Computed example of a mutant assay.
Amino acid sequence: MFTGIVEELGTVAAVVDQGDAVRLTVRAATVLEDTRLGDSIAVNGCCLTVTTLDVDCFTADVMQETLDKTSLRGVAPGDRVNLERAATLQTRLGGHLVQGHVDDTAEILDRAPSEHWEVVTISLPEALAPFLVDKGSITVDGVSLTVVEAGHDRFTVSLIPETLTRTTLGSRAPGERVNLEVDVIAKHVLKYTENLVRHLTGGTP
């Protein structure tokens, strides 16, 4: 479990193709301070398991399922990535509850800079639209954000200077893909409601 508060920007050091998987090595500093083998680190919002550790980097195996459903499929040496260690019971919940299980990818559609923030418009896959509401939570590339406006095929977020500086969202250009994870609480509420309606009506909601 994570909070969507990015701890640092790491750099992809190596990507080794293993056919049905990729071995990803990321150069980092902060997230390595108390990390051990088997710990979880979110890389652009994808929960990965640390398989090897070095002084300034860690390695994780990325399975085909993850490659098929996330933007990690296209990462290359030199790319910057958002990193966050798994939360503990002592962690401040500065963002929202994030599982690190990417629901789908989306495209950056537009960026509109202003003096103190930047409004970013992102496409919204149809299947995820029911989970977004204005002022609700969304995770974009592992960053916990508040939805400004939720449409049927797109949504907007406002990025403050801190987010623009400390995460990859500051440099994502229109046309680039990002990972999305919707609010897990919204998923459970919708599932519960559907099951309740099905039970009460004896059919499909």
Score class of each variant (00 low, 15 high):
D54I: 04
V55L: 03
D56Y: 02
D56E: 05
C57L: 05
F58K: 01
F58Y: 12
F58R: 02
T59Y: 13
T59I: 11
V62N: 00
V62E: 03
M63D: 10
M63V: 10
Q64W: 08
E65A: 11
E65N: 10
E65S: 09
E65P: 11
E65H: 09
T66Q: 01
T66A: 05
T66N: 06
L67A: 02
D68F: 08
D68H: 04
K69V: 05
K69S: 07
K69E: 13
K69Y: 03
T70K: 14
S71L: 04
L72N: 11
R73F: 11
V75R: 02
V75A: 15
A76I: 11
P77N: 05
P77A: 05
P77H: 13
G78Q: 07
R80A: 12
N82L: 14
L83P: 01
E84R: 07
R85G: 14
R85M: 06
A86K: 12
A86P: 01
Q90S: 09
R92F: 03
L93Q: 02
G94N: 15
G95H: 13
G95F: 08
G95T: 07
L97K: 11
V98S: 11
Q99G: 04
Q99P: 04
G100D: 12
H101V: 06
H101R: 12
H101Q: 11
H101E: 05
V102Q: 03
V102Y: 00
D103K: 01
D103R: 03
D103P: 03
D103E: 05
D103Q: 12
T105E: 05
T105R: 07
T105S: 15
A106E: 02
E107Q: 01
I108S: 04
I108Q: 01
D110Y: 13
D110R: 14
A112H: 14
A112S: 15
A112C: 12
P113E: 11
S114Q: 10
E115A: 02
H116M: 11
H116N: 07
W117N: 04
E118P: 08
V120W: 05
V120T: 12
T121I: 10
T121E: 09
I122P: 00
S123G: 10
S123C: 03
L124G: 00
L124V: 01
E126C: 11
E126D: 15
A127W: 04
A127M: 08
A127I: 06
A127S: 12
A127G: 04
L128V: 13
A129S: 05
A129F: 01
F131M: 05
L132M: 03
V133Y: 07
D134S: 15
K135Y: 02
G136Q: 01
I138M: 09
T139M: 14
T139L: 14
V143G: 00
L145R: 03
A150T: 00
H152P: 07
H152S: 10
D153C: 04
D153A: 15
R154Q: 04
F155P: 00
T156C: 06
V157M: 14
V157R: 10
V157N: 05
L159Q: 00
L159A: 09
L159G: 02
L159N: 04
E162D: 15
E162C: 15
L164Q: 07
